[in-house]
Design a protein around this nucleic acid. Structure first.
Lengths: 187, 187
DNA sequence: GATGGTATGTAGCAGTCGCTACAGAAATCC
DNA sequence: GGATTTCTGTAGCGACTGCTACATACCATC
């Protein structure tokens, strides 16, 4: 496993850019390399294998998106926090990143090595960012963990179906209302 | 486009079985055919193309799972309905079918022909089954549509992350509580 | 018993896949 | 300045992809 080289770091960023636009599933070395002005030969040289390259994409992708969520300003209410998180996630950038995540799940990467450990860590970081934003928007801390899980899961579900309609999902309003109620209700 | 032949109908069922176990993403004709005791040659003969074969798998898969949900008995309360739907979806059979659905979404099938129209119809049927079960479990009809969307999205989201943990997601309880509250609350 | 659709096996085409062997440049170190 | 390490191009391997051409059965109908 080689770790050195600024060339490699630059490649990770650019390959991740490519994956955000074109997805993970159909990814094959030659087209990616061509788009980056290099060759499959070089990708294997720098990363050792396609598998390792994908690990790097996942890491880079997760780091980017979590940071974006963490820099989202607090919302005026729990209800509004849900709507604002949805707005962020339907941003083209975030949607592309979510796509990577779903693709990884789909490919069965979540259950198997060497991805499993990576993804669990990534997910923890992401979920914590969701939670923190909810807390800073008025969700009581002692309920923030399960509400964050609910919000994250529901938004992911809405996003999966997004290509099916052009409208905002009606379930989103229900989610926002539900979160407002959960935040106010006793445990 | 050929439509005749009981052989073909039998093949659809068996190919769908295979897809439920092995997924849609890596599907290639020769291994599938071998597992079914036939040849890639015959699959192309009966279905015309791999693309058409996948359309048939999606149809068959959706028909099976919707029927299973429709035969789920009514629950004692909206809260319990959520838990019961989760129990159904974490059944191996249903989880496999959900996987097919997610894979189709992942592969970008949802936005493009010839899949788009198919999938929209499938999703409508499925969502209606979710809605009906909720209504029969005490959710008021005039709120059933958006609550169903919420439940479906959230359960799908939970399921995506299921390989990450062995525990029941804590967000599930929050979802159940939220649905109970939404069912009781005024619009 | 000839005819025509249904079904199937064999062989192969043209392309892609991840990856490697071999060689040569360029830079860095002793 | 020789040696070593880092980087890159060319060419190709063996496996696999969806799909097709060609031949050959089976089986029903007339």
């Amino acid at each position: 496993m080689r770790e050195m080289g600024a060339k490699r770091d630059e490649l990770v960023e650019r390959v991740t850019d490519w994956a955000w636009q074109h997805g993970l599933v159909g990814l094959s070395l030659r087209p990616v390399a061509a788009a980056l002005g290099t060759s499959d030969r070089m990708l294997i040289y720098h990363f050792g294998s396609k598998e390792q390259l994908i690990v790097e994409i996942l890491r880079c992708s997760a780091a980017r998106s979590s940071q974006e969520l963490r820099s989202l300003p607090a919302s005026a209410s729990p209800r509004q926090a849900v709507l604002d998180q949805w707005r962020l996630r339907t941003t083209e950038r975030q949607a592309q990143c979510d796509r990577i995540y779903v693709e990884a799940a789909t490919l069965g990467l979540f259950g198997q090595q060497p991805y499993a450990a990576e993804v669990i860590a990534m997910n923890e970081v992401w979920l914590d960012a969701v939670r923190l934003h909810l807390v800073s928007s008025g969700v009581p801390a002692d309920r923030s963990r399960d509400i964050a899980e609910l919000v994250d899961a529901a938004l992911m579900g809405f996003e999966l179906d997004r290509p099916l309609t052009t409208d905002q999902p009606v379930g989103l309003v229900a989610l926002a209302q539900a979160v407002e109620a959960l935040a106010a209700a006793p445990r």
